[in-house]
Amino acid sequence: MKTRSGILSKYSVVQRSEIKWAYLFIAPQMIGLAIFTLGPILYAGYLSFTKWNLIKPPQWVGLENYIDQLQDPTFSNLLKNTIVITAGYIPLVMIVSLAMALALNQKLRFTVIYRMAYFMPVVTSLVAIALVWRWVLQPDFGLVNYLLGLFGIDGPTWLSSTQWAIPGLIFMRVWWGAGFYMVIFLAGLQGIPAEYYDAAKVDGASSWQRFRHVTLPLLSPTTFFVFIMASIWTLQIFDQVYIMTGGGPGEATEVFLLRIYELAFRYYRMGDAAALSMILFVIIGCFTYFQSRYSRRWVHYDLG
């Protein structure tokens, strides 16, 4: 790493004035970032130590909000639901999207059409998708229960059942998100040099062995990226639950962000909401940190 003055001293006076231009170009948007992103993050940290109902000015209460939130009887339910959704979703979406990427990486015809189809849910707004999925999961005439009925299975009531609401959300989320991760896996697969496969073929490796010993290890940085991003985004699940179930039935699908939203904008308990969002932030931070450390055991940046 070069120090800043180290970089500057390498340039002539003319070039130094050029660097001022660079700062001038970047500065306006840095100020924007400071006011509307970094500022709010710090402000949220401050608010989490206060009681504030938007009317009276914030009042410092120390750690009270944190203690309240952690001791709240709903906390363990939030944690459980968020973890169950994440733990159910991640393996499913990773397997489905990797399988789709592997299939599309073969030289099939009409690849563009497949890719576009899988990709459509990624660009379409959740609001439109939710509309269709409410019908797909509708207990009496929905598509899923109709198909189950063909096999003589009496389908559950999905989103209105305390037991099946979370699996319903997970299936929908896999359908929704797989296209995005498929695109990323596909890019990773196309980055694996063909020579490795040729060499493995010469050595007489079967297609399963090539997958197991060439594709998987060389894809592991991409797999890791997908794993981390999918986890972070799912721990922060909001729109989908808000639109599909609103946290119900009862509190069966109540998750962190929904609770934070309700605390802040239904009950105007801004301090409690900020404290809970900080708790979630810490959970996500710890998760990411431990996964990155653990990842050294299975993420390879080269064969060997």
Partner: peptide
């Protein structure tokens, strides 16, 4: 990587 809602509350205040 930061939860949008954590930015949302102070952003609302600002």
């Amino acid at each position: 990587l930061i939860p949008t809602v954590s930015i949302g509350i102070p952003l609302f205040a600002i």
